[in-house]
């Protein structure tokens, strides 16, 4: 197990380098970051040259990348063009996004698995059909449509919630945005749980459990669920990374000043340091989440042993 973890950690290095290099190059071809700094007018060539030198933009790209990665490894993500250190931006943005992601994950687990269990045990009944239809609708409608619709209905027309989240983003205000963020994954979790449950329900060991004379409740929770939730847990684990990065749309709709918001602003203003810095951290989150999922998998299924 220990050796496996070390190997996985080592494997993360090339993935990390590749991913950051890609994003670095993509941002590089986005255009000249200096061009937008002087407002409407074109920059004075002398000023532009001075800024280029100051930010190291006159160096070749590979050199810029190396310098940048060197700084990142010492914890320096550079400064945004407005002079604010990127780490400072991260310090305000990540706690908000993490809170939002937590809300989303909890909703995903509680609602998704509950609906999946209910429908999986009642396949073909009206409950099953209606939930299935509902999940299909949720999956097919893009998040920005559901998000704006919910904001309009709950926030503006009926006034149940504040249409935009305040700057401190308290937990209570994040519940509806969290639901919007989780909606598509939630629908997938429901369907995955349902299918997995229905499949395992016909399995031999469930028949054994029934033949042992166990109460139905015990058959379902101890024997059926334990096995059926293995793929679901895997899905939810990998989803953590996706939710943190994918909050851009939701954060924008509800005006939440988290990672997505900062990324959006960064791209809009061609703020290279911000974009690359945030994406780098997101890549790390993805990698660590995936590793944790793989390790969790071995805990849940004793047949899997890593050597």
């Amino acid at each position: 197990m220990g050796r496996y973890v070390v190997r996985r950690l080592l494997q993360m290095i090339p993935v990390f380098v590749g991913a950051t290099l890609l994003i670095f190059l993509m941002v590089h071809v986005m255009g000249d970051p200096i061009a937008g700094l002087c407002g409407e007018r074109e920059c004075d060539p002398a000023t532009a040259a001075r800024l280029r030198g100051e930010f190291g933009l006159d160096q070749p790209v590979w050199r810029q990348y190396l310098t940048y990665m060197g700084n990142v490894l010492t914890g320096d993500f550079g400064t945004a063009f407005n002079g604010q250190p990127v780490t400072e931006l991260m310090g305000t943005a990540f706690p908000v996004t993490i809170r939002l992601t937590l809300v989303a994950i909890v909703l995903e687990i509680v609602i998704g698995i509950t609906l999946g269990v209910v429908t999986g045990l009642r396949r073909g009944r009206p409950v099953d059909t209606s939930v299935l239809l509902l999940t299909l609708v949720v999956i097919s409608v893009p998040t920005f449509v559901t998000g704006l619709l919910i904001q309009l209905l709950l926030g503006v027309t009926w006034g149940w919630i504040k249409p935009s989240v305040s700057a401190e983003a308290p937990l209570g205000e994040l519940i509806v945005p969290g639901l919007v963020l989780a909606s598509v994954s939630l629908a997938y979790v429901t369907r995955l749980t349902r299918t997995s449950l229905a499949e395992n329900r016909r399995s031999d060991y469930v028949r054994t459990a029934i033949a042992k004379g166990l109460p139905r409740r015990r058959v379902v929770t101890r024997h059926l669920l334990r096995n059926s939730l293995i793929p679901v847990v895997t899905f939810i684990g990998t989803d953590i990374g996706a939710l943190m990065g994918g909050a851009i749309v939701t954060e924008r709709i509800f005006n939440i000043h988290g990672v997505g918001y900062q990324l959006y602003q960064g791209i809009l203003r061609q703020n290279t340091q911000t974009v690359v810095g945030f994406v780098t951290v997101l890549v790390l989150v993805f990698l660590v989440a995936n590793l944790l999922v793989d390790l969790l998998y071995a805990v849940l299924d004793p047949r899997i042993r890593y050597a």
Partner: peptide
């Protein structure tokens, strides 16, 4: 289970793997 019990053909799939 208590008064009548059953033994199945494939013990691997009939036992709970986890």
């Amino acid at each position: 289970g208590a008064e009548m019990a059953m033994i199945f053909q494939d013990a691997l799939s009939s036992l709970n793997p986890v």
